[in-house]
Design a protein around this nucleic acid. Structure first.
Lengths: 228, 228
DNA sequence: AGAATAGTGTCTCTAAGACAGTATAAA
DNA sequence: TTTATACTGTCTTAGAGACACTATTCT
């Protein structure tokens, strides 16, 4: 019988960079991947976890103390050789959380925890298990969904302004987005509601917005597609 | 420790209807859902299956004798109460196969196997386990992807004609599609290559096409969106 | 006044949608 | 010659993209 784990790919944006939470595995002999960086996760606890999603939520809460993030199932990876301990299957979720006021809790058996720039990590020689492949799938999914959904809104604390939201899009997509088109698109999709003016650090204050519906992103009928 | 299964939602189009393969569970006392219709699937065999996808492929081959279908991971469902035998997690794949020359093999422990109209099944009072929920998720995924990908091509044997492909779109979407726009869209996406004229039953022969790449569908930059 | 950021107006152009038309086969 | 299906052409229009413009705050 295969053993079952749940892993979570947690994204946030810090200092204008898309980052992912990684934990370092303990550098001891009996660990399957000693010393390597891994996605947070681990075994399902059949007594505490009522479902896979509940398990993912628990693991996310333990690491980041974030209660209600955006959480989406990414997929599952399973096979005979991905874990030296035997046939295993992991259910992977990915989460988007706002960076404001984040505090990391070191796990019991995790040597270190940190936020790493996604594009750097993708260039590393190895992550634990097949976590490099999983991370790549998560980044691909995120970048592709950002082209046609309102997902980046979940990277911001409410209320947020349209310029802030635009910056989230630009950070994730890795390219500039036209201001005017961006604004019409966001307002036309009707997923934002006004929440009063927010004073910035200086200069003209901007309108703050809240999501009408925090359960999921809105899907736009077209992708962002700059002319080449 | 949870136990691990793999289920497969197999779609095809027969007589202009989107259909799904279901198997009837044996009507015996020790079965968890006796007599109910279920998605084909079952336990992972750690000796025969090298990976989750290999397991799905095996189950599909056993039921339909189709060797290289379109196969995509749909998601996973796991929890304490979805199977009366205990905490379980299932990895679900969905497959698209052409209807031509299909032959069904009855499984060893399956009383009956059949192709059922999807919209009918969605109205049934119950399927085994949480398979009603899983089927709904699969249909939602399929219908939404059909709006912006070339997925319906995998419902046809090659070579196929553009009118045939259009019919697949119309069956899955449940609405008519404009011929002219459909053709420009398909040809502009450049995923088809000509394969000589195919004589229909009567009337003017149509150009046959093959997929340039059978590994996956092409993504269109916009969804089909008829004006309201 | 000047700088910085927020927000609007306008023009162009692509491609989708609607629909009428032409082309090629069989009966 | 009619019928059925395959395929093309043309017109309209929505909306994206580009970019210049105005508005409001702080220093």
């Amino acid at each position: 019988m295969p053993f079952t784990t749940v892993d979570v790919v947690i994204f946030t944006v810090i200092e204008a960079r898309l980052r992912v939470l990684l934990v370092q595995r303990p550098n001891v002999k009996d660990d399957p991947c000693p010393g390597l960086w891994a996605l947070p996760g681990g075994f399902v606890d059949v007594d505490r976890d009522d479902s896979l999603e509940a398990c993912a939520r628990r693991k996310l809460l333990e690491k980041t103390a974030v209660v209600s993030p955006y959480l989406e199932q990414l997929g599952s990876w399973g096979g005979a050789r991905r874990d030296p301990r035997g046939w295993s299957a992991t259910h992977v979720y990915f989460a988007l959380i706002p960076a404001e006021g984040l505090q990391l809790a070191k796990g019991a058996n995790a040597a270190e925890v940190g936020w790493f720039e996604v594009d750097e990590v993708l260039g590393w020689p190895a992550l634990a298990f097949d976590h490099a492949e999983i991370l790549r799938a998560a980044v691909d999914r995120l970048r592709s969904k950002v082209e046609y959904t309102s997902l980046p809104a979940f990277l911001l604390e409410e209320p947020f302004t349209l310029p802030q939201l635009q910056r989230m899009y630009e950070v994730v997509l890795g390219r500039d987005v036209d201001k005017s088109g961006f604004r019409t698109r966001m307002l036309a999709a009707h997923f934002l509601e006004e929440a009063g003016y927010v004073a910035g650090h200086s200069n003209r204050p901007a309108m703050g917005y809240r999501l009408r519906d925090r359960t999921g992103p809105v899907v736009f009928p077209r992708t962002f597609s700059p002319r080449q």
